[in-house]
């Protein structure tokens, strides 16, 4: 600062005491360090290592051969039809499950957002599948419901005079989607129902007085009100759907062929059965990128929510 400016400042401002030390304030840094370090160690460092492995030649069967290979793994990956198949499978699975759970969840939420005797019990029963372990879901559906001979659906088909259907063999992806949707529709239902119940009664009443019909009421009052909640449902579900594993592991093991091999299963197979660390790391990077495309929107939402929160 020039001497003149300093002099001018000195003239205008009363001699301010030197900036005081912060009062023995809260040890925020120490409070946040454990969580931060833990996430760094278990998430960020491994993520960096995945990136590193993805540009190395690294196969556990040939541990002596570990050198930098640039984009080779990625090239291999992009020429592997199974990878493309698994990518498409992943997207189909996520989109189908999203569409079903949100549509069904919304319908059920509207159904349960009315007062009728036994509502609490009915709702509790309806949301139970969400708490069921995915491996159990897979086994129960595969054996006791989908089984082409002894399964309940086969029996039902026979009773109706239809040919029994081997679900997991003939419609493997649809079967997986049904199981996952069965688990996650309750989640959408639960959250959307809470959203509906937070809708102020007077808004609905005002709309009715304004002459809105049932559909208009739904379209112009309920849906906009649910906007944020729907967003949360879609985003959280996509994160979980993107990483679906147990249901596939317990039923089709990715088959028949590669019909139900999604990205996580593809990586799992390449790493644990082909021992190809480099290639599966490259695929893992792909999975992270895919998840980020989805999460980008969620994080924007969370950040927006944060700002709204601090403005309150």
């Amino acid at each position: 600062m020039s001497p003149i400016a300093t002099a001018a400042l000195a003239k205008t401002a009363p001699p301010a005491p030197p900036r005081r030390r912060a009062r023995s304030g809260p040890p925020t840094r120490r409070l946040m360090a454990p969580a931060t370090l833990f996430l760094l160690a278990w998430m960020i460092v491994p993520l960096a290592m995945t990136l590193y492995y993805s540009v190395r030649h690294y196969n556990l069967m040939m541990p002596e051969l570990r050198n930098f290979v640039g984009a080779t793994n990625y090239k291999l990956l992009l020429t592997d039809p199974t990878f493309w198949h698994s990518l498409v499978n992943t997207l189909v699975l996520v989109m189908a499950c999203l569409a079903i759970t949100v549509a069904l969840g919304l319908g059920l939420a509207l159904l349960f957002n009315r007062t009728f005797p036994g509502r609490g019990v009915a709702r509790t029963l309806a949301i139970s599948p969400f708490f069921v372990m995915p491996v159990v879901t897979g086994l129960i559906w595969k054996n006791m419901l989908f089984h082409p001979v002894y399964g309940l659906l086969a029996w039902l088909a026979r009773e109706l005079g239809l040919a029994p259907f081997d679900w997991l063999a003939q419609q493997p992806m649809l079967s997986i989607v049904i199981m996952i949707a069965w688990e996650w529709t309750p989640f959408a239902l639960l959250i959307l129902l809470t959203g509906l119940q937070s809708l102020p009664e007077d808004q609905i009443e005002a709309a009715r007085l304004d002459g809105a019909g049932r559909w208009q009421e739904f379209r112009h009052i309920v849906v906009p009100h649910l906007g944020q909640v729907l967003y949360v449902v879609v985003m959280l579900e996509s994160i979980f759907f993107l990483t679906s594993f147990a249901e596939i592991y317990a039923t089709t093991s990715g088959g028949p062929g590669t019909a139900t091999t999604n990205l996580p299963y593809y990586i799992y197979q390449n790493a644990f059965f082909q021992y190809d660390i480099g290639l599966s790391s490259a695929a893992a990077v792909g999975a992270v990128v895919l998840a980020n495309v989805f999460s980008f929107f969620l994080i924007r939402f969370v950040a927006g929510n944060l700002n709204a929160g601090s403005a309150r």
Partner: peptide, 24 residues
């Protein structure tokens, strides 16, 4: 804000993204 968003965002690293290094 940054720290919070960062922490939450780690949830969206799919498990397979860190599986291999953690396994090794």
């Amino acid at each position: 804000d940054f720290t919070l968003v960062w922490m939450v965002s780690t949830k969206f690293i799919p498990a397979v993204g860190v599986l291999i290094p953690i396994f090794l």
